[in-house]
Design a protein around this nucleic acid. Sequence first.
DNA 1: TTTGGATAGTGCTATAATTAACATACCTTA
DNA 2: TAAGGTATGTTAATTATAGCACTATCCAAA
Lengths: 211, 211
Amino acid sequence: MKTLKIPEATIIRLSVYSRHLTDVDRKGIITTSSGEIADGVGVSPAQVRKDLAYFGEFGTRGVGYNVKDLRQHIMRILGLGVEWSVTLVGVGNLGLALSTYKGFRDRGFVITSIFDADPKKIGTKIEGVEVLPIEQLETVVKQNNTQIGIVAVPASVAQETVDKLIKSGVSAILNFAPIVLNVPPEIELRNVDLAVNLEVLTFNVCGQRCY
Amino acid sequence: MKTLKIPEATIIRLSVYSRHLTDVDRKGIITTSSGEIADGVGVSPAQVRKDLAYFGEFGTRGVGYNVKDLRQHIMRILGLGVEWSVTLVGVGNLGLALSTYKGFRDRGFVITSIFDADPKKIGTKIEGVEVLPIEQLETVVKQNNTQIGIVAVPASVAQETVDKLIKSGVSAILNFAPIVLNVPPEIELRNVDLAVNLEVLTFNVCGQRCY
DNA sequence: TTTGGATAGTGCTATAATTAACATACCTTA
DNA sequence: TAAGGTATGTTAATTATAGCACTATCCAAA
């Protein structure tokens, strides 16, 4: 298999396709087509085929795709064949919401440890997982061989938090703090900035006329 | 001012620039340059200049940019000169987290109404705002002339929720439900899918070798 | 067995976005 | 007042992404 660069947009769409296929499969549908998938997720049929073509041939010409098969393939491509151990740092309102978010476990992401700096929160249990003091982060994350860290701490301590996570051996970080983080290139980092999302909306609502 | 199409990536970066400039301004720094901004947010200087060039000339050749000025300009561009009335639908853990998120108010987004379907939650107050029954959504949102809706309900009721929001006159929607929504083209819609973000990470961690 | 309809896979074209290079303008200093 | 240094604004080139059209393949029905 060639290792040509895959656009990130393609990965995002694959993730959406797989979710769509899960729904379709649940309805008992056996076969689908690029056109149906396209309708279901709001892209063009050509785009669907193009995205899949990066990874191989999963359909049958003249027929379409087997729903279960294609779903399974995409899950594999996305690395969702196995369970992922996730650690969550920061148990504010957002951290609490993330720790109880059903969508994670459904897709194989299991929160195996939770940390916070606030003494009042330490020792409490969230969905069966005890909140530990931040000082134990390195030991526990190493022990569990956790690969993914979620950062839901205030911006002021976000950089030191990711530094700790990286020292502990995680290779991917999902950051919710509204700040630009410095990480070495081998660490995968994604930022979810809630305010930025609203600001893209306001720009578009202004019809790009405000300025 | 010409109305050429602005890339969405540019808007996202502008939002990040403005946040960066707020920090820089707070440090008492008067003047900055495209290079410094680039360093601060992790893009190239040319990118910074290009992004700004879509909207006008905000700097002085040979000198750089006045921090306060440039920040003000970008805020204007993003439509952040005024306060935005926002309504929140769904008071699960995520909705609760969003309703108390400081980053929104800081940037001029004020949650003026909150709705939920669960009778037990109705009447409770969150940050001084009373949770109202979903049946009152249309009336209240119209009354307040609210422009932005945040959807934090389960996927199964997300489509009917946005339908209600649109009937009530909102023009922009930020959706957290993991489902593809149908909205008319004049409505601005952005999706924040938490699981998708993790899946992009796992794909990259797998080094694109898993498949 | 052959033909028609349908749909995946693929190469090419066009569009968009990023990067790089250059010319312009401003401030400072001698 | 003139010259040098510096950083912007802008144009050109490169790269990346999406869209389209065509070809190959399969199934079903006559």
